[in-house]
Amino acid sequence: MPIIHVDHLCKDYQVHQKEPGLAGSLRSFVRRKYQIVPAVKDVSFEIAQGEIVGFLGPNGAGKTTTLKVLSGLLYPTSGRASVLGFTPHERKAEFLKSITMVMGQKQQLAWDMTPGDSFLVNQAIYDVPDQDFRQRVGELTDMLELQPVLKKPVRKLSLGERMKCELAGALLHGPKILFLDEPTIGLDVNMQQAVRTFVADYNRRTGAAVILTSHYMADVEALAERVLVIDGGRLAFDGNLSALVAERAPNKVLKLQLAQPVSPERLAVFAPVRMIEGLTAELLAPRGNVAEIAARILNDVPVADIAIEDMPIEEVLGRLFQRKPMAEAAK
């Protein structure tokens, strides 16, 4: 049962243009030029209860814009968005109480107070009954291991601790939808892992839908079965991650561990060589006959070990996005 409907959504921004240099500044001082920059163009999709969906795309592709439309921060230029039956930009209190948004780059906890203080404020703002509040704080504290930091002022926390507190603070009212915008940005690998595990757990426990954008492919890989690829404001792909790889990466990677040095020319007979370095080599084999190629290599070349892998997603997407000039994807 879908809880988010997005129907031919478009969103344009008004950006004022500045020419470089002093003369340019003077000109734009006298007459300011505005440019309409389309950020999201005709995007449609639906998201169901309990889904975890990852938005993928290069910088400025329109991921965050879509997220902001869904959370009611932006008015769509045209098209429709409906979330839990509400029109987001009307910003009804009831709607706002059933969603939450965590922005990796924007802080919502009061800087000079402890996370506990901010939690109390959130409790009051979101009208959370005492019992629910205590229970959720307890749960979240356990899941995120917050016990040691709850009583420290936020400004004294590390980036990772702060993000965990942000997450906890954003979930106290038991939202049905989580919008996570770059939730792991700037965190170290362990902390990224912790946040991922938490989000997955939370989704499983509460059945809340999670919509996240991230630069880190690992986030999306670990969490989202379904991805929406947004590129240049358009929806370029909607489906599960492995289908994306299958569709966009016709080749598999054959990783060879050679028993003795082999010249690149000799390997190129079987399939295009992706890289060769000492005794390690990688070939690109078309999906369909990868097994046959592997068999031939094993016959003809001294191979110590062989492995068949998918192309790393980063690379698949990198190639996907390269085709389009970045200029048109300005925010």
């Binding site: 500045k18 240099g21 002093l22 500044s25 003077l26 734009s28 001082f29 300011r32």
Partner: peptide, 12 residues
């Protein structure tokens, strides 16, 4: 001065 003037022109 030149740099600040440029910034200021932004904030007309």
């Amino acid at each position: 001065i030149r740099a600040t003037v440029q910034i200021q022109l932004e904030y007309r």
